[in-house]
C-alpha cells in the first residue's frame, strides 16, 4: 500500500491481481444488476488508487479497506438501480452474451443465476457477510470490520445465511 501511495502503477497491478478475482465475485453477488460488476470493480480500484495516501494500516488491513470501498459503491449503485427500475428506466433484460464459447459456459451461467437467486432471497447483511466469507475467506473479525459490528454478530449472520441458503438451494449449487 505504501508503494501505491507513492504512485507506483506496478503496485496497483499487483493489488488488482490479488484482490480482483474476489472483488468481482463479491460484486457479482452484491449488485442488483450483475453486468455492472466489472464497472464497479474498476471504480473500486480507481478509488483505492486515488485514496491510497489516506490509507491507515493501523485502522484496517488492505483487503478490509478495499472491500469497504467496494461495499459502499455497490450499495450506492443498487440504490440507483432500484430507483431506475422503479421509474421503469432499467427494466430491459440483460443482453445475451454473444462471445465465442458462450454456449459452452451455459452451465456456468446457470450456476451463477442459481447462486444469485439464492443470495437475493437473503437479507442484505446476511448476504454481505456470506459473500465476504465465501469469496475472500476473510476472518469473522475482518468481515465485522468491513460491515461494521462485532465478530459475534457476524458469526450469527453467517450461521443464518448458510442455513437460509441451504434451505433455499439444497445441494443444487454443487
Amino acid at each position: 500500500m505504501a508503494a501505491l501511495a507513492a504512485g507506483d502503477r506496478h503496485a496497483m497491478a499487483q493489488v488488482i491481481r490479488r484482490h480482483g478475482p474476489g472483488l468481482r465475485r463479491f460484486l457479482a453477488g452484491m449488485l442488483a444488476a450483475p453486468h455492472e460488476a466489472e464497472d464497479i470493480a474498476q471504480e473500486t480500484f480507481l478509488r483505492v488508487w486515488s485514496a491510497a495516501t489516506r490509507y491507515d494500516p493501523d485502522k484496517a488491513s488492505p483487503s478490509t479497506w478495499i472491500y469497504r470501498i467496494a461495499l459502499r459503491l455497490a450499495i450506492d449503485r443498487n440504490r440507483r438501480t432500484g430507483f431506475r427500475r422503479f421509474l421503469g428506466l432499467d427494466a430491459a433484460p440483460e443482453p445475451e452474451d454473444e462471445t465465442p464459447g458462450a454456449e459452452s459456459s451455459l452451465a456456468a451461467r446457470q450456476a451463477l443465476g442459481l447462486a444469485r437467486a439464492g443470495l437475493a432471497a437473503l437479507p442484505d447483511r446476511q448476504r454481505r457477510a456470506l459473500l465476504l466469507r465465501a469469496v475472500t475467506e476473510m476472518s469473522t473479525a475482518e468481515i465485522a470490520a468491513v460491515l461494521g459490528g462485532t465478530p459475534g454478530a457476524v458469526e450469527q449472520l453467517l450461521v443464518r445465511a448458510r442455513s437460509g441458503l441451504r434451505a433455499l438451494m439444497g445441494d443444487k449449487l454443487l
Binding site: 502503477r9 496497483m12 488488482i16 480482483g20 478475482p21 468481482r24 465475485r25 447462486a115 456470506l130 469469496v135
Partner: peptide, 28 residues
Amino acid sequence: RLEAALAKALGPGADDTAPLSRAVLSRM
C-alpha cells in the same frame, strides 16, 4: 463446501484479471 460452491458459481472468468487491470490502468 457451500462457500466454495458459491464462490465458484459467482466467478466464471473472474480469475482472469488482465482485462480489469488494463481497464483500470488506462482510466488511471
